[in-house]
Design a protein around this nucleic acid. Structure first.
Lengths: 237, 237
DNA sequence: ACCTGAACACCGTTCAAGT
DNA sequence: ACCTGAACACCGTTCAAGT
């Protein structure tokens, strides 16, 4: 009898809140969770099952919003391009604008190291990447490039940044993580490298007392200036 | 009775040949089989089980010769660098030598498309890659670069080639394979792209009647000349 | 319309056991 | 020294079934 009475009482405060996933998953929500997982654990850390768990959903629920894992990765890949800075093509000068873009793209990749693994795998057709490309091409066109050269020049800069940054990421994930005594590394390299690869060894000797991250930044800037010099020579031709 | 007689007869020719794996697996043999599998089926086609089967061995036998799959991939990755042409640094002029190297590296990657997927994953420390790097650096040194600039210049060329070629591979594996009517693609792009991304659309219009593979080759050469121009300007500075 | 669980066909890797 | 098979802990994806 008493039991019945208590059962009749009911209010928002007594009722269990419905699980916060609420009305359902959205593609946007899924992509955001996937990005979190990628940033936290890298490409290998992202599995449909883990992603489902993080969303308080069954792993297979995701397949209603997204055809498969590759499509999900395409969405993640495109999303990061919103962070890449491209100055306004109508007002900025092309050379500093390209330099800003290049450094911005590099640091975006370094902030999301999993990008390095996706670059050889994802066809970049998302709106954010297209938008960046379009604005870079506009920059090139205003710089004086014409016709096919607009694409070629754009591709050159993009290729350089990606090609330079991907190995940087790999380096940070392998050699960069372990605390090696510089002397130890020196000894290892000295034995195997000094005789067979003299130039390589000389280069290693030159940089052994420098901060590797700083050296990589210098290297990136150096090559970028080369590329931009090469482009500038063509604009004025 | 007759059965016994036949059983006694024995010779090399009657005896079943021992399975051709013979004395055992060698690391070299494993790597060669893995390369075959990679060329034939790509990175996803290579599994330890399939590789074992191809070697007439248990999948787990491989683990005696190689610590894990990543190490195996490192070995495969390094192996392809033997095909990359670097002219003799002591006799060749640096600029044509770098151009030869760049085109050779590009075509090596295009011949082994799985390389594009490994680039963001493998720390390149194998002897063949080191040897190529060493010779390129020697080339740079003879060109007139000094100190850190030897490494920087080398890294710039490598970055450019990889960054340009990786997307080429991705393109060939996705868009390149399907027979799309140019008109269809045009229609798709026209709707979504023409207004939002005018420069992109203009570029697409300019190249729609060209052979995409040829355009990519032109683009590669164009950017390479930019990079080499930029380097040349620094040598003479 | 959206989500679930069970099931399928795979993975890489470990390890005790064999020869 | 070299190889095996079973086993473990994962995968991505499909699909009938639920609400």
């Amino acid at each position: 009898m008493l039991g019945l009475v208590t059962k009749q009482f009911s209010s928002v405060w007594t009722r269990e809140e419905r699980p916060p996933k609420a009305p359902g998953l959205s593609r946007d929500q899924i992509v955001r969770a996937a990005l979190d997982l990628l940033d936290a654990e890298g490409v290998e850390g992202l599995s449909m099952r883990k992603l489902g768990a993080r969303l308080n959903a069954g792993a297979t629920s995701i397949y209603w919003h997204v055809a498969n894992k590759d499509e999900l990765l395409e969405l993640c890949y495109d999303r990061v391009w919103v962070d890449v800075v491209v100055l306004d093509p109508e007002t900025a000068h092309w050379r500093p604008a390209l330099s800003t873009f290049a450094h911005s793209l590099r640091s975006t990749i370094l902030r999301h190291p999993w990008l390095a693994r996706l670059l050889g795998r994802i066809p970049g057709l998302g709106p954010n990447l297209l938008s960046v490309s379009d604005r870079i091409m506009r920059l090139m066109q205003r710089a004086g490039f014409e016709g096919l050269e607009i694409s070629f020049a754009t591709g050159t800069v993009m290729a350089y940044v990606m090609g330079q940054t991907i190995p940087e990421v790999t380096w940070r994930e392998t050699m960069g993580k372990q605390e090696i005594q510089p002397g130890d590394l020196m000894n290892i390299l000295e034995k195997t490298t000094a005789d067979d690869f003299p130039e390589l060894f000389a280069a290693f000797r030159d940089t052994r007392d420098m901060d590797p991250l700083e050296t990589q930044r210098m290297s990136f800037s150096y090559g970028l200036e080369c590329v931009l010099d090469g482009l500038e020579a063509r604009v004025n031709a």
